[in-house]
Design a protein around this nucleic acid. Structure first.
Lengths: 218, 218
DNA sequence: ATCTATTTTTAGTTTTGTCTAAATTTAATT
DNA sequence: AATTAAATTTAGACAAAACTAAAAATAGAT
């Protein structure tokens, strides 16, 4: 399994190709900043190896084996992210790039020991779930803040956009995972929200609210 | 700097090419389990980049820039080895292979943080010195056990052969770095030694003694 | 149902790092 | 000094992963 093959599988999974949904070569190319013709080549190679289903002009989806491989890479990526934040004091906007490299290290023992050192975390620094060793992947029950009703309360548990600028924005405004949130009011005009964050009242734009995940209180 | 280039520089350094000594393409090829013709190709490329001095038919040596790069890779390799042993309970015979991968991760911040986490260790698990961030590389004053005089005492500080079988042999015989050693007697016939290791008397073969480094007591 | 516009694939190149086989240079021996 | 053996380089080829440009297939619109 080459690094490039691993990156393709990961990308196809992230685009939804794990649910036997067909992903177009164009979509993959765009996501990976490469050309569709390169994707076609790789699709053939991965199909040859039994990792994807590929039908000409129809796109690709992951086989069971492909899903398993993709999940193991995602598991490594997210565990390394936790490691960088928890053990080495990286900030959550710095971890992605380094984890992109670390995820390709080949040693089952290494990643299992890292998992143990971190006390088997369930979520990465951006709130994304970490697949278990045996490939179980459990999405949390969460909602975009922008979709919550007035007066509903919850806890901030993740980000949809995990780009550096967005993460830095959240830091600057002291919005962090684990914070309690209550929706006070919604502005029809620009869809901005008035919220209470850890008791403090503040106003946030629709763009922010539609990129923050909240776990609703029951 | 590609992974392959890094591996060449590291190998040339280990073969002594850091002291403006010329290393033959054959020696490099043998060490790296590749072919001399491949080494020639890479020698040209590295010379092009100013990392080695290469004269046709004469071999290669590292430039200052090449030494600096080699040391930074060796630094990473050895720090990762310490990390694996100290933080993840790897045994000293398991670390090399994984460190060969980790040494190529590109992030200055990552390795500096690992260094800090480990409290700036000076030696790796096999007793080899860890270059500092600014490229200082200090060999310890050490001697092969086989070269010590009768009645001399010291501390076991390193191994010359760091192959898995030798390291496992040492484990099995409870010989570890940090152990105190006194040479009791030398057998002329087979060059075996009687030694006192941490107070316990034992006999070891010449082959073992000529692969164990000792720091003599003053 | 036909015609475009778009998407996707094919064919042919490129780069990196490797290899084999042949040619060349150096070193060793007489 | 000539000859041979060994080491080294050159030339040509290959595989992986990418690209460009051209060809083919699909989908959308009338």
């Amino acid at each position: 399994m080459t690094r490039s093959e691993e990156n393709y599988l990961k990308t196809i999974f992230h685009l939804g190709g794990g649910d036997s949904k067909s992903i177009t070569t164009n979509a993959i190319a765009e996501q990976m900043e490469t050309k569709p013709s390169s994707v076609t080549d790789m699709a053939k190679k991965l199909a040859e190896k039994g990792l994807v289903n590929y039908v000409k002009y129809q796109g690709v989806s992951l086989t069971d084996s492909g899903v398993k491989t993709a999940l193991s890479i995602i598991r490594k990526h997210r565990l390394w992210e936790v490691f960088l934040v928890e053990k080495l004091d990286f900030s959550w906007d710095e971890v992605h790039e380094v984890a992109e490299q670390l995820e390709h290290i080949k040693s089952e023992k290494l990643i299992d020991k890292i998992d143990e050192l971190l006390n088997f975390p369930k979520y990465d620094p951006h709130g994304d779930p970490i697949p278990t060793k045996d490939g179980k992947f459990q999405e949390r029950d969460k909602k975009l803040l922008s979709e919550m009703a007035i007066n509903a309360t919850g806890v901030c548990v993740g980000v949809k956009d995990s780009s550096v600028p967005f993460l830095k924005f959240l830091d600057k405004n002291k919005i962090a995972l684990g914070n309690s949130i209550k929706v006070l009011d919604k502005e029809d005009f620009d869809n901005s929200l008035r919220i209470q964050l850890e008791g403090k009242e503040m106003r946030i734009s629709h763009q922010i609210a539609s990129n923050l995940y909240v776990k609703k209180n029951d």
